[in-house]
Design a protein around this nucleic acid. Sequence first.
DNA 1: TTAAACTTGAGTGCTCCGCTCAAGATAACC
DNA 2: GGTTATCTTGAGCGGAGCACTCAAGTTTAA
Lengths: 137, 137
Amino acid sequence: MLSISSKCRYGILAVLALGENHGGGLMQIKDIATAKNVPRQYLEQIFNRLVNAGIVNSVRGKKGGYRLAHSPEKITIFDLVEVLEGGVQLVGINEPQDAVSELFGRAQVSLKKTFEITLADLIVRQQALLENVMFHI
Amino acid sequence: MLSISSKCRYGILAVLALGENHGGGLMQIKDIATAKNVPRQYLEQIFNRLVNAGIVNSVRGKKGGYRLAHSPEKITIFDLVEVLEGGVQLVGINEPQDAVSELFGRAQVSLKKTFEITLADLIVRQQALLENVMFHI
DNA sequence: TTAAACTTGAGTGCTCCGCTCAAGATAACC
DNA sequence: GGTTATCTTGAGCGGAGCACTCAAGTTTAA
């Protein structure tokens, strides 16, 4: 089954939370885990990846936490997918030039385009969705 | 790593071969395996799936083989991906209405669109590629 | 020094991938 | 009617990754 892992979904949700809080100080993993309903220890692993990839900064010790390493305009969801999913590679680099590889290549390009939205854009979209929910109450 | 399995690639290549031969009788698995450079016994498994899905017909016994169950105009590559990859499900059906799920939904749609090309179209494209190769010799 | 936070490494049960092996069942052909 | 070429079915196997959990760390504020 071609699907996106929970790891990736969890990671994007967590980074989205950091993005919504950008400039507002540190966020702690237990709060994010609770808010987004993600197993805390699993989220720790995910944050490790993000820290190692330089997307997120960590501060250790009491009153520690995480924050974005760059502004939301400079982070794309594709960056996150690469780190969390280990890349997107529908077509191998050494494949013969046949119609099937060509098709897979097109699929890969369209997927990449979809994910090349910035975190800033995603935050805006998320707020729009929230307002929509408010409107319907 | 988000990627398409060899199984899927092999299967599409094999169905492409059947499609190119459509109306020309049966093809045998050993010939397809040799032509497309796929392990024969593995290709047998793949053909079983395609037969069970009603995409391909098999004829047993000596002089047996495989053929398409429908004309290439009626088979889409998405059909094949569903059977061989077990579906494409970037966004779960019970996910909250957040910006991340929405994005995954868009990715899924664009992937589906790319794969909704018919086998007939793929055959045409493959022939065009072959002619192009000839031209460059 | 204590407690709250991140860090690191290991382990676990599960499923799938990419095959291979070993028998079958079926049908054409001599 | 037996051989032989084909498809069919079921099993197994090593490796990888998923989705976690467990168990210790280390660091820092208070």
